[in-house]
Design a protein around this nucleic acid. Structure first.
Length: 858
RNA sequence: GCGGACGUGGCGAAACGGUAGACGCAGCAGACUUAAAAUCUGCUCUCGGUAACGAGGUGCCGGUUCGAGUCCGGCCGUCCGCACCA
């Protein structure tokens, strides 16, 4: 091999990466002990559903987590960085239906494949804590939790209108319905009346809302989304008496407009409406029609508001001489407030529309500032802003806020109502009519009713011998599984065949990791030691799903005595998606990138037909814009992929995957590798002292190293990975200009290469080990201390000061650091181009910002 | 409709209120090669100029400031969340 050809030698990433992965594994260096004296740091990435293969979105997520984990290790923390599998879910069942493979087998195979892929990426996980939620050793603990919730009143069974996904053939929680469609199936969701298990998340509405303020290391956006989801509204509950029966209780946020009430509207499923319908065939028909209309959320949105006037009239709580008609209306939700409302058409647009349609009176009771009470009238637009109460008896003259208070007091004094708070948040429906989930541990006994499975009978294991040839829940079709004897009276009873929503498993897995092999759900001491998670990383799509459920679950477990903790995730980072160009042919079919070629200035497919580029989309199989991880790792290595995913965009933003982008990183990897394997100057032995009296160029170079250390440390602390990469590359560029002939160049080069290896370590761990070894270090760089910047070296002696005239840049000055303000002024005024611009005049004002700028105001 | 985020080169992006465009991608020119690949060097916001340099420039309009991509007000646009919530 000639000297020249060796210059073109490439870093053999595949060989080196496999070698280091084996070595780390053999030493078990990433296993975490629960009794480590160093300060703890728990970093966690949202664990994946084992769908088949790891995709780039996963890799981006886990790379960020790995950078944090390795960085914190180097900073001297005991780091817990576990990985597991969110292993229950419908795709496994679908695979069983389609391919005749058992969900357990399908899941296990996927886990094996994906674990291999993660190991190939070199993530520093403690694999000894790996969990899969579909194992009875995992899910038996949540069956126990459910029984505890049941005993504590946090779980209950209720017949209610639920979201039915006609594709998944199961119920969905409110959080799992996006724009009226199932979050996974994208099918239009229908309303069905079913008996379901619920968790009482609403018991914590106020606490979950209030504690958002304490989550100061969460993105503002996520906190806001949860705040809106919980949807707290202050108002009052008001009783409207009706002749004979129970009064109608309504909820309102505008008790100040009570004198403007001109009707009451009940939900079609309000008890009074159902009662009246028994003796009113037309009303019964109306309710039935509402149900027909209301089968899908989308239909509700499109539906016109209409109501049915009942024979009932209600007595106004503040003026018993007044009567208001009672309607049943299709737009009133039984699930919000009390399922009944009073309409004040003058000050609510929807009520106004309703009143106009049915010819009801519009009584203005809030006078806009400056309006004339004698002539003020409401036309087509309700007046919803602040003003002064009028036409309102004892409220007249009060502001909206004062009137609300006064009404509240009056209602409470007279027993006609009380101030109240309503939440948008509903209880979490956890029943799913599916097989591949955790069985709900209850038994339906014809004599004893619903009884809990005794603790000693846990776990209730899923039967393995199920068939998927019929639609619906295989557990329901199983010949024997559901038939059991009642544990109390021993008479023939039936097991619950619903399973838990899979968000049940992910609501506590972070606790299980603290003591993954514990015979109980988690060891309390271990959980209280590791929790809360210091840094959690995942997609923003879980803002009101997993992240809200987990916050609730942690509180519920605390209430049941499992541990003492409110918030599971102290720090949260939501990373952007990995997106990729999409291609479509004239027929609208998606094409793989490799099916598209350039022909002149246009794109064509393999048959030469025109291809259009679509928008950048999240990588997905259906759009054919996925990039296979195997090919990338085989071609460029895991480190190259990792650095690319960190470098090209800020982590919270979407990242566009491009082949040229990853090639650029691959070139960089080889440059760094060559710098170490063919050093430009002879390197002294490791840990030999830095020579004194270096040339100014070498001293300046050392300054770059130490400035980079400081900047990268700060950037990694603040999740600014793209900037950190840019800073390291700047340092590499500077190092390539090493004055190799200067005395001491070898020592400075060694310092530069060591700094490069240490700073790259969290991002490109294999290359870093390779460099570290090439530099003659025997120990792991994975266990090396993070470098500390020497402030003396990091400080420049010379600074460049911008010289402005009237705020415009006109020149720059190189001056010693911390020069006196007078000297800076003098130097600036002495510049020929400046004196030319000033034309002999003295500036009116001179602003000097030390070491930065001087502005001459003429 | 309500709430929020964001608008900077051909592209991804940098920039404690202080030299806009660091770092990279793409492109152009050159070196090395019989040639290509790989590698290396230089250029690359716009306009004028061979150049030194000058003028303009961070969606639009205004304001605060010695100084605004950054702060404030109002528009326009894009994206996201919620949406008959009483």
């Amino acid at each position: 091999m000639t000297a020249d050809s060796s210059k073109n030698e490439r870093y053999n990433a595949r060989e080196a990466e496999t070698r280091w992965q084996k070595a780390w594994d053999a030493q078990g260096i990433f296993a975490t002990k629960n009794d480590d004296p160093r300060p703890k740091y728990y970093v966690l990435e949202m664990f994946p559903y084992p769908s088949g293969r790891i995709h780039m979105g996963h890799v981006r997520n886990y790379t960020m987590g790995d950078v944090v984990a390795r960085f914190k290790r180097a900073m001297g923390h005991a780091v817990l960085h576990p990985m597991g599998w969110d292993a229950f879910g419908l795709p496994a069942e679908n695979a069983a239906i389609a391919g005749g493979i058992h969900p357990a087998t399908w899941t296990a195979e996927n886990i094996a494949t994906m674990r291999g892929q993660l190991q190939q990426m070199g993530f520093a996980y403690d694999w000894s804590r790996e969990i899969a939620t579909c194992h009875p050793e995992y899910y038996k603990h949540e069956q126990k939790m459910f029984l505890d919730f049941l005993a504590a009143g946090l779980a209950y069974r209720k017949e209610s209108w639920v979201n039915w996904d006609p594709v998944e053939n199961t119920v969905l929680a409110n959080e799992q319905v996006i724009d009226g469609r199932g979050w996974r199936s994208n099918a239009l969701v229908e309303k069905r009346l079913l008996s379901q298990w619920f968790l009482r998340i609403t018991a914590y509405s106020d606490e979950l809302l209030a504690a958002l303020r304490t989550l100061d290391r969460w993105p503002e956006r996520v906190r806001l989304m949860q705040e809106n989801w919980i949807g707290r509204s202050e108002g009052a509950r008001v009783f409207f008496a009706v002749g004979g029966g129970d009064p109608i209780e309504v909820f309102t946020t505008r008790p100040d407009t009570l004198y403007g009430a001109s009707f009451i509207a009940l939900s079609p499923h309000h008890p009074l409406a159902e009662e009246l319908a028994k003796n009113d065939a037309k009303l019964a028909e109306f309710v039935a029609e509402c149900d027909r209309m209301g089968t899908s959320e989308a239909a509700i949105e499109a539906a016109e508001k209409f109501g049915y006037r009942t024979a009932v009239e209600a007595i106004h709580p503040l003026d018993p001489s007044r009567r208001v008609p009672v309607y049943v209306a299709n737009f009133v939700l039984m699930e919000y407030g009390t399922g009944a409302l009073f309409g004040c058409p003058a000050h609510d647009q929807r009520d106004l529309d309703f009143a106009r349609k049915y010819g009801l009176p519009v009584i203005p009771v809030v006078l806009p500032p400056g309006a004339d009470p004698a002539s003020f009238a409401v036309g087509d637009t309700a007046y919803v802003d602040d003003g002064t109460a009028f036409n309102s008896g004892f409220l007249n003259g009060l502001s909206v806020a004062d009137a609300k208070r006064a009404v509240g007091e009056r209602l409470e004094a007279t027993g006609k109502g009380q101030r109240a708070i309503a939440y948008r948040l509903r209880d979490w429906g956890v029943s799913r009519q599916r097989y591949w989930g955790c069985p709900i541990p209850v038994i339906h006994c014809p004599d004893c009713g619903i009884v809990a499975v005794p603790e000693e009978d846990l776990p209730v294991e899923l039967p393995k011998d199920v068939s998927f040839d019929k639609p619906g829940n295989p557990l329901d079709h199983h010949p024997t599984w559901k038939h059991v004897a009642c544990p109390y009276c021993n008479s023939p009873a039936r097991r619950e065949t619903d399973t838990f929503d899979t968000f049940f498993e992910s609501s506590w897995y972070f606790l299980r990791f603290c003591s993954a092999r514990s015979p109980v759900a988690f060891d309390r001491k271990a959980a209280e030691y590791w929790m809360p998670v210091d840094q959690y990383i995942g997609g923003v799509e879980h803002a009101v799903l997993h992240l809200l459920y987990s916050r609730f679950f942690t509180r519920a477990l605390s209430q049941c005595g499992y541990l003492q903790l409110d918030e599971p995730f102290a720090g949260l980072f939501t990373q952007g998606m990995v997106i990729h160009q999409t291609y479509q042919n004239a027929a609208g079919d998606w094409l793989f990138p490799e099916e598209v070629t350039e022909a002149g200035d246009r794109l064509v497919d393999e048959k030469g037909a025109a291809v259009t580029t679509g928008r950048l989309e999240k990588m997905s199989k259906s759009k054919k814009n996925v990039v296979g991880l195997e090919r990338i790792v085989e071609t460029y290595g895991a480190d190259t992929a990792r650095l690319y995913l960190l470098s090209d965009s800020p982590p919270e933003r979407d990242l566009e995957w491009t082949e040229t982008g990853i090639e650029g990183i691959w070139r960089y990897v080889n440059r760094v590798w060559r710098m170490a394997s063919e050093p430009a100057a002879a390197l002294p032995a490791a840990s030999s002292p830095m020579p004194k009296d270096l040339s100014p160029a070498l001293t300046a170079l050392r300054g770059v190293f130490h400035k980079t250390i400081a900047a990268v440390t700060d950037d990694l602390d603040r999740f600014r990975f793209n900037r950190a990469v840019a800073r390291i590359r700047e340092m590499t560029n500077a190092l390539e200009d090493l004055p190799a002939a200067d005395p001491g160049a070898g020592a400075v080069l060694r310092e530069g290469l060591e700094t490069t290896a240490l700073l790259l370590g969290p991002m490109m761990p294999h290359l870093a080990e390779e460099l570290w070894q090439a530099l003659g270090h025997g120990e792991w760089i994975a266990e090396a201390k993070w470098p500390v910047a020497d402030p003396e070296l990091a400080r420049d002696d010379q600074v460049t000061i911008a010289v402005q005239v009237n705020g415009k840049l006109r020149a720059t000055l190189d001056l010693p650091r911390d020069s006196e303000s007078g000297a800076v002024q003098k130097a600036a005024l002495g510049l020929p181009q400046i004196s030319r611009l000033l034309d002999g005049k003295t500036p009116k004002k001179i602003v000097v910002v030390p070491n930065r700028i001087v502005n001459l105001v003429a």
